[in-house]
């Protein structure tokens, strides 16, 4: 094991897969200097600021025997390439009756908390969850980002990786040897008995912090990280809720039609899990506003450990706040 930052772990995944797969091509508006130095300018390309063109180029490469990484940098720039992602990458295998594979990885950073205002702070993964044909990963730790990116680069479908900007410098343990993290397998990041907290991306770290405060009040929280949104590990989430009887979902994206809403649906529509619920599931989400610029408003609009603590405590009326 070694302790490295999330961003470093992601870079290692890309570098190691480039060594393993000579059909891999990187397309980004920013030069990737280390990658360029090792693999050359043919495979590591700088694109003009033309998101539709380079996402489409990744699709054309994929349909011609290559595998491309289209690094959009920020999720907000993805909207410029929406047709290529939604109408092309996601549907192309299906529309053509499965006769061709489109292996590609689209990387986007996302999230609020840096005072970058509405356009640059959006967390739009739930929009893409509504588009069959895409796989969506949401790595939360250095270990997960490296393992999930490696799985993405060995998958035969378009995969979007949503990497929270504020996680970039968060260090974590990563094995020295090659490993992957499979899609569709949630990770219980903290075992508990009284309440299940399903937390997405950076909110996982907030939920873990809140769970320490909960422990001090005698509440044992189980913190579940889905790690991939498509496919979503429904069984693990239901299993945890069946055990604890309570559910709080934490997601910094806007509340309406969110991934959090989907998690609650999959719990309540399952008779067996529903029957075990001791209280109504709760959501702790971003407010339904564009992310504001000024820090007091921005902090107000997104979840944090305090809001998670409050939401969980509301399920335990006899516990002293």
């Amino acid at each position: 094991m070694k302790k490295i930052a999330y961003a470093r772990a992601a870079a290692e995944a890309v570098q190691e897969e480039f060594r393993r797969d000579n059909k891999l091509v990187y397309l980004a508006t920013d030069l990737q200097p280390d990658l360029r130095q090792e693999f050359g300018e043919e495979r590591v390309r700088v694109t003009p600021i033309s998101e539709s063109a380079f996402v489409g180029t990744a699709i054309g490469l994929a349909g011609s025997g290559y595998r491309a990484i289209a690094d959009l940098r920020m999720a907000t720039f993805g909207f410029v390439a929406m047709d290529q992602m939604v109408n092309q990458a996601a549907k192309i295998t299906y529309m053509f009756g499965g006769q061709a594979r489109f292996p590609m990885l689209i990387r986007m950073s996302f999230g609020a908390g840096m005072h970058w205002a509405a356009q640059h702070s959006i967390s739009p993964y739930s929009m893409y969850m509504n588009v069959p044909g895409l796989k969506i990963i949401l790595p939360t730790t250095a270990y997960d980002v490296k393992g999930l990116l490696k799985s993405a680069l060995r998958d035969n479908n378009p995969v979007i990786s949503f990497e929270n900007t504020l996680l970039g410098q968060v260090a974590g343990d990563v094995p020295e040897e090659d490993y992957t993290v499979p899609f569709g397998r949630a990770d219980v990041k903290r075992v508990g008995t009284d309440v299940t907290v399903v937390a997405l991306s950076r909110m996982l770290h907030e939920a873990l912090a809140a769970s320490v405060a909960l422990e001090a009040r005698g509440i044992s929280a189980e913190v579940v990280d889905p790690r991939t949104l498509v496919p979503l590990d429904r069984e693990s989430i239901r299993r945890s809720v069946k055990k604890t009887g309570r559910l709080v979902v934490v997601d910094e994206a806007c509340r309406t039609c969110s991934a959090a809403a989907e998690v609650i649906s999959l719990v309540v529509e399952d008779e067996e899990t529903y029957a075990r619920l001791k209280s109504a599931p709760q959501r702790v989400c971003g407010l339904d506003v564009p992310i504001p610029y000024s820090p007091p408003m921005e902090q107000y609009a997104i979840p944090d450990r305090g809001k998670i603590l409050e939401a969980v405590l509301s399920l335990f009326p006899r516990v002293v706040k």
Binding site: G56, G60, G63, S64, A68, N87, I92, Q99
Partner: peptide, 27 residues
Amino acid sequence: ADFGIGILGANGIVGAGLPIATGAALA
């Protein structure tokens, strides 16, 4: 589409084939 003979598909969105062809040319 017929990938076996190099037809990367017809496309219902006007202009959307151009970036895909750019990728085929890069390949």
